[in-house]
């Protein structure tokens, strides 16, 4: 059943359905304020070489680890082997056995390589990871990932950082019908209405980064996204009216003068 509260992923529970990235902010202070405004309880991070120049500040100094669950990603990995390696490095840094599994197939579109993604998912599930794979909006692939032991499936709404919104809402709905694990729409959100649409479809959550970090005012946009995710989820559980081609009056004709 989708849309239940709290959102359960692995052995963790979340009351916020919004997962946010930590990349592309103008500075760490803005990021910190935006994370707070988003109400999110889970934030994504990347695994990269440590900065040996100690004059530069560290991301982790700006993230309250009591408040946020860290979700390491495998961004930039193009093969299953590479993604598995980065997942293990992430686990070694500690704090989490969760991984936002990305295996990219093409530099220009950043579309996933689903063959490699499935392969990496199988290896990591066996290795005890809570695997959260970023995938195409392909229902068959989503089902295969679930069968391979993925804790959630994360179909894209549109290419990463594109801000194009949910390009194929019908596929997201089919994915929701086909898998039992939570469905989190990852990538493509441009503005608040996109997040609301993702949630109105019945998605269990939304993951975004650029839409907030790249906004003129990231802190304000973070708050907008928080409200949009809540509103979209509420609308889904409320049950929308069916769409019709013709009007149906909200006001009765009864009692009008002759």
């Amino acid at each position: 059943m989708h849309g239940q509260l709290p959102l359960r992923i692995g052995d963790k529970e979340f009351h916020s359905r919004l997962i946010v990235g930590t990349g592309k902010y103008p500075d760490f202070v803005t990021m910190q304020k935006a994370l707070e405004a988003s109400g999110s309880e889970m934030v994504t991070v990347a695994v990269r070489r440590v900065n040996l120049d100690r004059t530069q500040e560290s991301l982790l100094d700006y993230i309250d680890l009591k408040r946020y669950t860290l979700l390491p990603n495998t961004a930039g990995c193009y093969t299953a082997d590479e993604a598995v390696k980065y997942s293990r490095l992430a686990r070694e840094v500690g704090m989490s056995n969760m991984v936002k599994l990305e295996v990219i197939g093409d530099q220009r579109t950043l579309f996933p390589d689903n063959e490699e993604l499935l392969k990496a998912t199988k290896i990591l599930v066996k290795d005890g990871f809570i695997v959260m794979p970023y995938t195409n909006d392909d229902p068959i692939m989503a089902k295969k990932l679930e069968d391979a032991g993925a804790a959630v499936v994360m179909p894209l709404g549109a290419p990463i950082g594109s801000g194009l919104g949910i390009r194929n809402p019908h596929n997201i709905v089919i994915i929701l019908q086909m898998v039992q694990v939570p469905v989190i729409v990852d990538a493509g959100v441009g503005t608040a209405s996109d997040a609301a649409i993702a949630m109105e479809l019945g998605s269990d959550g939304v993951l975004m980064n650029t839409a907030i970090a790249g906004a003129k005012d990231p802190v304000k946009m973070a708050e907008a996204m928080k409200k949009a995710v809540e509103a979209g989820h509420l609308a889904y559980t409320a049950g929308r009216i069916p769409k019709k081609s013709y009007a149906s009056a909200s006001t009765s004709m009864e009692g009008m003068i002759e």
Binding site: G21, T22, G23, K24, Y25, M31, T44, V45, A46, V47, R48, R49, V50, L52, S58, L59, L60, L70, P72, N73, A75, L89, A90, V93, I160, G161, M208, N209, T210, A213
Partner: peptide, 10 residues
Amino acid sequence: VEVLTFMAGG
């Protein structure tokens, strides 16, 4: 030797 940590990412 590679020393890695968590950095900003989406």
